[in-house]
Design a protein around this nucleic acid. Sequence first.
RNA 1: GGUCCAUUCGUCUAAAGGUUAGGACUCAAGAUUUUCAUUCUUGCAAUAGGGGUUCGAUUCCCCUAUGGACUACCA
Length: 530
Amino acid sequence: MRERRVRFAPSPTGPLHMGGVRTALYNYLYAKQAGGKFILRIEDTDSHRFVPGAEQYIIDSLKWCGILPDEGVDENGKIVETASEKHPHAPYRQSQRKSIYKQYADELVEKGFAYYAFDSSEDLEAVRKEYESRKEPFIYNHISRKSMKNSLSLDAAETQRLIETTDNWVIRFKMPENRIVKMNDLIRGEIEVNTDTLDDKVLWKKADQLPTYHLANIVDDHLMEITEVIRGEEWLPSLPLHYLLYEAFGWQDTMPRFAHLSLLLKPDGKGKLSKRDGDRLGFPVFPLQWTNSEGEISRGYREDGYYPEAFVNMLALLGWNPGTEQELFSLEELTKSFSLERVIKSGARFNPEKAKWFNQEYLRKRSDSELANEFKAELVKSDLSGKIGFASKPKEVLLSDTYLTEVCKMLKDRVSFIKEFIPLSDYMFVTPHEYAQNVYKKFWNENSCSMLEKLIDAISSNPCTDAESIEKAIKDTIAENGWKMGVAMNTVRLALVGESKGPGIAEIIHLIGKEESIARIRNLIDFSKK
RNA sequence: GGUCCAUUCGUCUAAAGGUUAGGACUCAAGAUUUUCAUUCUUGCAAUAGGGGUUCGAUUCCCCUAUGGACUACCA
């Protein structure tokens, strides 16, 4: 039994999409479950599409999610370039493996599985146009290759001359004629394709001395001893080619098993989830915030306030489920429960609402003091920061662990994200000076002033050491005077909060303190007299 | 156009031939409450259509429809 080795092999052409993170996650879970290795390999054979920063973005994103590669990335978060015991297959960046691919392409030519093609891109374009005008699809295959410019249609001397004197040629795979390729996919089962529908894919390009994806991918998977290839559904159509390449090299015995994951779909409408959907519907499609070369910012789950555990949990359940009703999983639990057999075949439509729900669940799992710490970090960088503090409690007191923990304890059931604490708790840090008009109109009447005066008396004669006794004092006063509970309470609430929201009145008074509470009630009385 | 893949409540999904087709998110109603929330209870809501196979199909097969991917000297 070989050691289980899987890889995540993204192309550094931009920020890693959440669908890509899911692919990486499934690879990771699959490897870890069997105590195998999860490898990161950068597939940058297309220099034209290279985007600076994208590689680091991929590494940082995986790190944030806790999906750490065993191989390919060093402890400093850099792609490994030289071989060592831990990273025996370095370099892990295909552009730096350039020199190893040519011999494999040559080998295929020698064995008759590939050939040289000299058609210029203009030639190819012209042929495609011609076919298109006849409404026929152009496939570079056993039929059309005879009329194209290649080592199969040209004589040996001319072929040799062109190889030596030109440098725009390529090596193409010689797709066999009329053969049924039988394949197996770990998620989808048996798949059959006739080779007549496939074309002679380019494997290697003289112009930039680099292989294309197909060759580099197969060679590297072989060299890196990959046992399972878990990748996106977009690769399913090239699976026959990949099978045939393993066969041509004679590597069938160690050919990895394949699993193709379905795509993540738009929350609404048709098609796969794209960056634009996030902008349009207001949710992130990337794990981390990304700024492109034009300075456009794409939001990230991290910056939007998601916990990585929630993000990972949500992603894991988008296309996989354990067969039980459990929905909340830590990364360790996922590692134990995950199985490719239970991965869903059909595309999963992404639901931003459910993503929020996951975050809420994780937020509630945190202790009040953990939340307090996270809340403090948000609070000090918010607009509120400069205004925090009131007469009886200066800023230091309000930002103390004790005070913030109390605030979080009172409010944690009302939020899905830490940043939501701020608009919900502003009155706990700043004295309100504006009052919601509709609330004022609804509850204020000619008796309000005297009512509030009596309540001030009740509060000031109470020690205010616990919320229960404050509550009792207020309710007793209300009962003694025969006021309506709702009116009295809401009027006090208006004074303390400025609007109609928040936890119990007594809890608020206990938190902000007797002095501040009385001051706020006086403020409202003064306000009514203006 | 061609090839391949897919199709259960609005969404994520369970039921690997026999269930009143289950759960979660969303939404709605009710209860609790001084407010806003929370919480609890209840409700709405699905096997794409048509043929087979079978005593019996959500489940197996075929056709159609729909959706998706691919069809580059991109990955």
